[in-house]
Amino acid sequence: MSDTSVPDTKTGKSFKLKAFVNKYGILLIFIGICILLSVLTISNGTSVFLKFRNIVNVLRQSSVIGIIAMGVTFVIITGGIDLSSGSLVAMIGVLSAMLARNVLHLPMIIPVIAAMLLGILAGSINGALHAKFKIPPFIATLGMMTIARGVAFLVTNGRPVDNLTPSFQQLGQGTILDFGQNFFIPVPVLVFLVVILVSNFLLSNTRFGKFTYALGGNEQAAYICGVNVDRHKILVYGYAGLLSGIAAVVLTSRISAGQPSAGNMYELDAIASAVIGGTSLQGGIGTIGGTVVGTLIIAVMNNGLDLMGVSSYWQQILKGLIILIAVIIDTMRHQVSR
């Protein structure tokens, strides 16, 4: 008995370590990057990277992409993809900016609600194109991406929409719990946090979330289990659209104008965040926590390299490498477990 029990515990331990690395690997990499950047940016005895202002800055910069990435995570878990989110941010941004102009004197809530509704509408159209007309999501959202960008330029004639009400501008520029230089929370970060919490609850604690995994895990089986597959697809893409609408409000407010060229390539950053965070493009696998870490890795890398004075050209190359490495690790991990 004794000679069999020894290797047993041994494999048990190595198995646990492997499971731990599998589960928290990306978080460990994130922490590693943070420690590295903290050390590399030390000047005059303090780490610039670790300064409160800088950390808040990173969070604020990552909030818009982060909000989009939450919705994209749902979409990718169903086995789909959403290419329209960046363009939706631009289109909804300019349209809500039009409602938020000083001359109209509308309360802040009106452009915000309008942005959310527009997002839900555009997203649901994505979902319906995929579910009802059986168009692959890549194509359906590619069409939406092009159309939305066109609408954004058309309605503005290519010019930014500015002179926004002060209350609307607070959404992107304001802070809460403001104790001066040492502690404050920017509103975009707060919005990001709320979106994270809601998305996480939806994905892991509700029937909606369970069905999202089911759809990506095996659509035919989900159908037989009684999932209304078409309706659920529309809901998931609708949720992604809603979050694009919220991101549009935050961005428009932060830059004080609705820019028809805003949000360019955000959809790809959002997809990258989800993928770096372990969401599988095959569907059925992914977590909100993973995508949050994925978003932060991209933001922290950009920030740290900025602080070290690395050119933005190099930053792009490094970002590309991180995406590739993340996917390679992910693929290898799943090969092992199968």
Binding site: K210, Y213, A214, G216, G217, N218, A221, A222, I224, C225, G226, V227, S280, Q282, G284, I285
Partner: peptide, 14 residues
């Protein structure tokens, strides 16, 4: 039938 990437419990409750 199965949702291969998911857990035993998830597979049971759908």
């Amino acid at each position: 039938g199965l949702f291969l990437p998911l857990s035993v419990m998830d597979n049971m409750v759908y």
